[in-house]
Design a protein around this nucleic acid. Structure first.
Lengths: 212, 212
DNA sequence: TAGATTGTTAATCGATTAACAATC
DNA sequence: TAGATTGTTAATCGATTAACAATC
């Protein structure tokens, strides 16, 4: 998706699986095979229409329309994520943040993104048809908070608390665990380890994406 | 590793591949096979010695001794990561943070973790034998910063800037891209998507891990 | 010795890739 | 028509798992 967006920004209207895959750091056959899981989008002899492919992927990802999300827990990380402008560009909008601490709520009165108390959560979720939440509350509060979220109808949680959340079927949790990321890196700089096999897409660089 | 630490905290001295794998959410054969890549650590009929296995994994990960890391870029995210106590528990110590902005440096004078100006980087890296850096500078500064890091002898970079860093062989970059995490979650809450196949280890919960 | 559990082999499964017919 | 490039098949490759001999 990011490669396509860059091509688009550069005015390219068509791209071959060859070119796009090399930009993304995968093999052309891999790319073509993967795309066919969702349908047929290419033109033999020509390649893929950049706009059409972008639209198709956005639809698959569910980012075709701006997707509303809520953020729970306005601590250090929560603040960092609120100030991250990257979500918006990828099709997400933090419609509101929430915090259990009323001091935090009142301290953030005039932010561009409103910070509300937890009891306003159900109304906001229902008003904006929010389906995803970014969870950055302390670990002690994580499970009970996710329970509340699910009651409001949230079905996707991006969890930054380093613990396993228990959720019913139909609710998806994706975990971001920074300690594990660092351990992973540590493994690869040890002498015994073979080279990291993480792909580093070599062609497209400097996506104009602001940092966190 | 986290499952083992929890067993240890509970006083367990021995664990079977059966028990450990169920705690970790994988199959027993998978666990045994994976462990044998690093050697033989079990006792037939008994299982694995929790302490010995912990030590072995720590050695493989390179976290047997407290590993010094530096953090570059004391913005919103940098501050959030500095206040994250999880790294220490997993065997990492942020020996110093650095920022190019002298205002930031002087504003952080009396933090528990020192914040220094970039020109002090080489001396600190060499003094503490630092091999890993957490990079949370703005995207415009990311490539040039990583170049400086590599000159000092850093061989591992945990990169939060949403761009592809170019590094020579022998240097490992692990990327954390929060927008991709959210897109990934978005995919799984779309109706067309099959259930997320991310493992959720069901047995061990509430690892006593403080949040970010 | 009997029961338990590992380490390892061989079978299975799924994912990647080369090759190529279809077709623009 | 000739050149290019897709979509798809079949072959290859690698990872997971069942089964079981080794052995505590």
């Amino acid at each position: 998706m990011r490669c396509l967006m860059r091509l688009k920004a550069n005015g390219l209207e068509t791209v071959s699986s060859q070119a796009l895959s090399s930009a993304a750091g995968v093999k052309p056959t891999q790319l073509r095979k993967d795309l066919t899981y969702f349908g047929q989008f290419g033109t033999r002899g020509l390649g893929y229409d950049v706009n059409q492919l972008t639209g198709m992927i956005a639809e698959v990802l569910g980012t075709n329309t701006l997707q509303p999300v809520v953020l729970i827990g306005v601590g250090n990380l929560g603040k960092a994520l609120i100030s991250y402008r990257g979500f918006e560009r990828e099709g997400f909008e933090i419609v509101s943040a929430f915090d259990a601490d009323t001091n935090v709520v009142s301290a953030c009165m005039k932010w561009t993104i409103p910070v509300r108390s937890m009891d306003e959560l159900p109304a906001i979720v229902s008003k904006h048809h929010v389906r995803m939440a970014i969870l950055c509350v302390p670990i002690e509060a994580a499970q009970s908070t996710v329970n509340s979220l699910i009651k409001t109808g949230i079905t996707g949680v991006l969890n930054f608390a380093p613990m396993v959340l228990h959720v019913p079927d139909g609710v998806t949790v994706n975990n971001v665990n920074l300690a594990i990321e660092l351990e992973n890196l540590s493994y690869f700089i040890q002498e015994h380890a073979p080279e990291s096999n993480e792909e580093s897409p070599p062609e497209i660089e400097n996506q104009t994406t602001p940092p966190v």
